[in-house]
Amino acid sequence: MNLFIGGVPVVSLPAEKLFDIGPIHFTNSMMLGIIGVSITFWLFWYTKSKIQSNKHTRVSIAMLWMFDILLGTAEEVLGSREMAVKLSPLAISLFFIILINNWLELLPFVGPITYNGLPLFRGLAADLNFTAALAIITMVTAQIWAIRTHGFFGNLGRYFVNPLKDPVGVFTGFLEIIAEFSRLIALAMRLFGNIFGGEVLLAVMGFITVWAAPIALPPFMFLELFVGAIQAYVFFMLTVVFVSLGTASHHEVASSDEPLTLAGEVAV
């Protein structure tokens, strides 16, 4: 992405297409994504094998520790261990894949290595298609869980209220529909914006500092490590919160004085 043309960094907002395999366009973000997903799979399989052989290493202990924390957080938010276990494949996978890909994009080979004049690798979360896909999966999952909890018409009751019974409810229901779409867009854009912005920041700082870049860039790289971890956790947390809001009873949500998700989103 941070290709230099004529000595000036060039930032491409969409991921660049590298080649086609049949009808599939392979982009540079997918290339790094494949590596990131492979590392994620390896880490999980490694941890699983170490658990089964009961020969733990630092890596397996760290993975299990993080998994435990995330599962515990989900359990706390959802209020049920069973629900947390059911949601963990989505929520915890989201966290690890986002985290590992966010950190991978800080490695030196991302950017400089080119293929047909285009960078071969690009941060996976710096591709809006990926973040939008995650956001859509999250919001659809939240709706499916809400329907399973309240039933199809019960879930519709969150958005559509009889105006004769509750005139204010009509307005709040309308706002709730808007909120669902805004959450989806915010989820996708927040992650994309943070990671893409980080890449641009590093490219610009490298361009500005020129030969002093080896000294000037590390602080920003540490910042990006931090941002990458925070964004992964935020995405995980919001996924759990949205599912929790969908499965909470209407009364609980209506009586809550604190607009949890909106406040959370604004705070982030």
Binding site: P14, S88, S93, D127, L128, N129, A132, A133, I136, I137
Partner: peptide, 23 residues
């Protein structure tokens, strides 16, 4: 912004496969 349906679907399916396998 670079959003296109084909890439979106591909990313969605890939992630669902990851979730299914890990899960």
């Amino acid at each position: 912004l670079g959003l296109n349906v084909q890439s979106l679907v591909l990313n969605t399916l890939a992630f669902l496969v990851i979730v299914a396998v890990l899960g």
